[in-house]
Design a binder for these strands. Sequence first.
DNA 1: TTGAAAGCGCTAACAA
DNA 2: TTGTTAGCGCTTTCAA
Lengths: 355, 355
Amino acid sequence: VTAGGAPGDREPTAGGAPGGRRPTTLEEVAALAGVSRATVSRVVNDSPRVSEQAREKVLHAIAELRYMPNRAARTLVTRHAGSIALVVAEPGTRLFGEPYFAGLVRGVSQALAQGTDEQLVLLMRQSKEDSGRLERYLRNGHVDGALIVSLHGRDNLPERLHDAGLPTVLGGRLLRECPVPCVDVDNVGGARTAVGHLLATGRRRVATITGPLDMGAGVDRREGYLRAHADADAAVDERLIVEGDFARSSGYEGARRLLEQAPDLDALFAASDLMALGAMRALAEAGRSVPGDVAVIGFDDSELAAGAYPALSSVRQPMTEMGRQMTRMLLDVIDGVDRELTVTLGTELVLRDSG
Amino acid sequence: VTAGGAPGDREPTAGGAPGGRRPTTLEEVAALAGVSRATVSRVVNDSPRVSEQAREKVLHAIAELRYMPNRAARTLVTRHAGSIALVVAEPGTRLFGEPYFAGLVRGVSQALAQGTDEQLVLLMRQSKEDSGRLERYLRNGHVDGALIVSLHGRDNLPERLHDAGLPTVLGGRLLRECPVPCVDVDNVGGARTAVGHLLATGRRRVATITGPLDMGAGVDRREGYLRAHADADAAVDERLIVEGDFARSSGYEGARRLLEQAPDLDALFAASDLMALGAMRALAEAGRSVPGDVAVIGFDDSELAAGAYPALSSVRQPMTEMGRQMTRMLLDVIDGVDRELTVTLGTELVLRDSG
DNA sequence: TTGAAAGCGCTAACAA
DNA sequence: TTGTTAGCGCTTTCAA
């Protein structure tokens, strides 16, 4: 059974019944209640300028007809969509693997719950082909604003949305100048502290598996690694550095490569918990004990870190707070409130068994 | 900095510029191109009834003005929203932990990519308070249809959407009669095969950590466990059965409880990979080797299963296929095509190191 | 406090 | 092939 038909030629049914029944309109409510459309509208929108008597009648009619206002009509006149988008600029595959996002969504929901009645919708870009449709969706007036996270390299979606006049806020800085407001965490500081700790506890050959180097988080955590070495007057050995992509498998592969090109490593800083976990597997397979032979520290302090065996030390980022801040910033942009363009949140090293 | 203002009183800006600039309209494009609005509309909608010359002029004007059609206006007249919702009826916390959803989303995206131009939006219900807003969003005409997964107990969202005339399809059966079309996997069969395998390979005390018993998947996998025992003429011992909620922690807790109330268990069937992983940790802590002392089989065949150590045997469910089927079914409902109300997809036991 | 009327930006007959 | 016209369902002046 295939869907059939060319793209775009489906039956018009939005909000309508498959069986043909059309949704009730304001007009019908007004007729049943014996008042004008304007009065019904006032009742629906909680205007105080309605008599108790009229309100009563209208509410009865609404209940009886199971009336629900038509969003499109409303949006058309109010220029307000009633929803904001959280855009994850990568395949859902990544999204669902990354415990990272859970806290973010929680924070966004919390901030949204207080102060607005906007519905949060999550949009993913599964493939390159989705881009066009996604951007159209966002610029269409479908949403009142967009939060964008996990943006790679030269993707200029933020600039395009900004130019189109859509209120937009970024999570995680870009590697270029960008006029779009941004909330970031102190990746440099977090990595620096973690690697500093490893060096301070006597590790001499500290390796790292970086994040993707076309992302701020990737570059900055690598920078923190370098600075910690500078802080300790320790030399940096390129053989101790490999690039990953935050996913578990790249941690596994990365660790194997490290074990090959620098078998004398005695510590590892992975730019994500998932990579740290993958790396720990590779270490186990190679017969290296953690933290005996090799100390390991991850980044994210996800649930997985605490649940790992041995429990993984990690740099905690306040994802929930990030979600909240991004949302407040977006609501301010929507409201035309002036604010600082960038906020950076602190991180914290959480030590467990692994290092 | 707080968002300020009462709910619902934000500035009207949908699709509009924060700076006040209003988006271009069809009318302005028509004026610039020197044609009527109808002609512009035809060009935008790829109608063949436009002269090459007119089309040219219009396209130029569109490019120059960076015109983008207003969705609300379009939706109002076409009764078509251009997006469908995937509703996950639980907190994002669960969502992002569960590798389960990645395949589903992939399947939905694939099916959507061919045959339609609908945008997929993911909606979560973080808290009980979100319900009202969520349901309003869905019934509003915001979307053309809804896919609902991970529904618990007496939640009658599907019925309400169905009554409201919104095309809806379920993923995973409900524990009650329901007029809403549904795609499910053969949970009973999958569990039966897995447990059957354990019994057939000489295990005598096979325990299980079930899913939540207010969900079809929970009840059905438990049923498969029972049937496998019946198949093998093996007695069922209630002490070998504990209830979990699919999350890792409940697997950990469940296994600890099992080890206490039935220390002689020699195999474990967990109704999710996450629970199996949690259980394996508890087993390790208790000094039980896997699969030497205790064989373990999970359910989902997620990436985590193959990546675990020891690698976890698991029942594979075709999540991508489920996403595809659900989507095709939904598109058919939207198009008013008659179809069977229920589809059940097969599962497959994947044996690895753990059992 | 209420109603009449004018759109919001677009599509879709219907005429020309 | 094109333009004119009439709405889609709602909010919002403006009068009454």
